[in-house]
Amino acid sequence: MSPLLEPPASDEVAPFWDATRRGKLVLPWCRSCERPFWYPRATCPRCLGDTVEWRQARGDGTVYAVSVQHQPGPGRDAADGPYAVALIDLDEGVRVMGNVLACAAADVHVGMSVRVTWQALSDGRQLLQFAPRE
C-alpha cells in the first residue's frame, strides 16, 4: 500500500493517539451524560460536557456502510488497486471510518463483523483499521 495521508494529531485528543502507540483503542466518554462519542474531541457533542474520560474499547464492530474505491482517493496510488472504505459501528455505540483490510475489497459488506487492527504511521502512532472477525 502506498504511503497514507497521515492524520494530524490535535492536542485535545492526545490520550487517543498515545493509546494507539500501545495498540489500544480508547474512546472518549462524557462524564456528564456517561456515553461515548465520536469523533474524539474535548467537548461532548451531545451535552457540551467538558469532562472526558478515555476508556478502552473492546474493538469489535459491524460494517454500517461500505464503498470500494476504484479510483485512488487522497494519499493513495492507483497501483494499489481498489480498496474498501467503510463506516463501522463499534459495539460501544459510536460510528467510525476505517479501511477493512486482510480480505478482498469486494467481499466487504454491510452487516459484516469486524475487529480492530492497526496500521503503523511514521511517528510511532498507529492508524485505527479493521479486519474481518473470524
Partner: peptide
Amino acid sequence: PMFEWEMPYGLRLPIGAYALAASRHMAV
C-alpha cells in the same frame, strides 16, 4: 477534523460519501 478522522482512509470526496449512503440504502 476530516483530516484527522477521515482523510487517512482514502475516501474519494464527494463521491465516496454518497457511495456509502447508497450502499446503506441498498442494504436496508
